[in-house]
């Protein structure tokens, strides 16, 4: 009889402990002391490097400007940084490379060699070789000068491959570096 009472008391105590644990939940548990968790790695900003950016001038040539830029090692991000900068006025005051208010919509690299750069399409038809050639090659040459692993660049407009922008340049495929359009320094 006495043993049964002791058993009942023990069972009751165990039930009370369980009830308390269930009510207070795991948050109230005292954290166990131990080693401090390692801090999460914070992203390291890409190092600033001297990038060569090419901006068209009124002579139709591409004028190099040295600009310190945070250039990531990863190709697509590097191309994105370069082209985004080209769509802004140059440090020397030259206008953005695009002859219309273009926005960069996508960048992707195939086989580690060919970069595809997608811009918003112009709302109104563009005219003039003097608008098309400097714009296209400012983008192509800037990318290829700053991304030595890339071999060619194809420009897309409105997520589409186009034969030409103003009826002059053949844009249906990737373009290699064209140093002949870069102004002599």
């Amino acid at each position: 009889m006495r043993a049964r009472v002791v058993l009942l008391v023990l069972l009751g105590a165990a039930a009370a402990v369980l009830l308390l644990w269930a009510l207070l939940g795991p948050t109230s548990r005292v954290p166990q002391s131990g080693p401090e968790p390692a801090p999460l790695p914070t992203p390291t900003p890409a190092p600033k490097r001297q990038a060569v950016l090419l901006y068209p001038g009124s002579d139709g040539l591409l004028h190099p400007e040295i600009v310190p830029l945070s250039l990531p090692d990863e190709q697509e991000n590097r191309v994105r940084v370069l082209v985004s900068r080209l769509l802004q006025p140059s440090p020397a005051g030259r206008p953005p490379v695009a002859p219309y208010p273009a926005m960069l919509t996508d960048v992707f690299v195939r086989e580690g060699k060919i970069a595809y750069v997608d811009f918003t399409a112009p709302e109104n038809p563009l005219a003039g070789c003097g608008n098309e050639v400097p714009f296209v090659y400012a983008v192509v040459d800037t990318i290829l000068l700053n991304c030595p692993d890339l071999r060619a660049v194809q420009l897309l407009f409105g997520d589409r491959e186009v034969e030409t922008l103003t009826g002059h340049l053949d844009l249906s495929g990737p373009l290699p570096l064209n140093k002949r359009l870069i102004a002599p320094s």
Partner: peptide, 12 residues
């Protein structure tokens, strides 16, 4: 403005 070189559709 000189002689320049580029891939033109009409010359392809």
């Amino acid at each position: 403005r000189g002689v320049k070189q580029a891939p033109f559709v009409v010359l392809t």
